[in-house]
Design a protein around this nucleic acid. Structure first.
Lengths: 144, 144
DNA sequence: ATATATTCGGATAAATTTGTCCGAATTTAA
DNA sequence: TTAAATTCGGACAAATTTATCCGAATATAT
């Protein structure tokens, strides 16, 4: 479904959200440990997220990553997916055909239509805040 | 969504189905040309499909690939996907977590649940015959 | 029998994704 | 002002996926 990079991105963002409840920042090291991801690779991904204004980053001692309360509610899963994997998951044809469209559909186009739409809606309507809350409430987990 | 290999596999199977209307066989060369795929790579994929009894293959002159009418109706998209990409698309966690489950769900588990189920049902209920007919009727296309 | 047309299977190569390393830049604190 | 803690960025390495090459095996027709 998503690339590994994108999976790490979502997990890292969620962990950061949970930890950013105060003004506190989390370090790369903490994030990688918490979400069980390779540290250096995670660093690259956090950079991408920061460049895309999904998370904030501060260098130096007591530096690290954070997300403001407002951002948590604004930012949707779709924005993370888009920043890391691009829009293929929405726009791409199920069979990889360049010019597949409503008018000239591939054989599975109509079969996939509803599923794609549902996926798109879900990603566009699910905020970091919502998911972060389910983690805080112990209703979901990041290390499994 | 699917790997490139799996996209080729579905396209190749459908083209073979359309062409197998009589007893006719299609050659690797024809298939690759028809679905616009790299020939040698497509050969590997056709071998996999053949080993998984999704298509039939015959060597030698006038050899090639084919699917019987019965198979066309029996074989579902899910079987092709399974043969090439495995079951990650059904069973894998959206965030790549090994032990994500109903009891210990990842933060997006419930968000993905319905979509996964719909996708699974669609793949398990869509036969090669059905898709092949839409191609024959000019309602869908393999080269776009 | 022999030549030919084809798939099969193994080795290899190219491209992409995933992952590592390390020095530079930045910020803080003593 | 110096040392330490951190992120940043570029180069590199490993793993996986995608793709190619070629000889072997197999079947057909002459």
């Amino acid at each position: 479904m998503f690339s590994k990079a994108c999976e790490y991105a979502i997990r890292a963002t969620l962990y950061t959200a949970v930890q950013s409840s105060g003004e506190k920042r989390v370090s790369l090291k903490d994030i990688a440990k918490a979400i069980d991801s390779p540290e250096a690779f995670t660093a690259k991904i956090l950079q991408q997220l920061s460049r895309n204004q999904i998370i904030d980053s501060v260098k130096g001692p007591n530096g690290g990553f954070s997300i403001s309360k407002e951002k948590m509610s604004e930012i949707k899963l779709s924005q993370i997916v888009n920043a890391i994997d691009g829009d293929a998951i929405y726009k791409g044809c199920g069979l990889g055909l360049k010019a597949c469209s409503e008018v000239f559909p591939c054989p599975v186009h109509n079969k996939f239509k509803q599923i794609r739409t549902d996926l798109k809606n879900m990603l566009e309507n699910t905020s970091i805040a919502e998911l972060s809350m389910s983690l805080t409430d112990g209703l979901s987990f990041l290390r499994l």
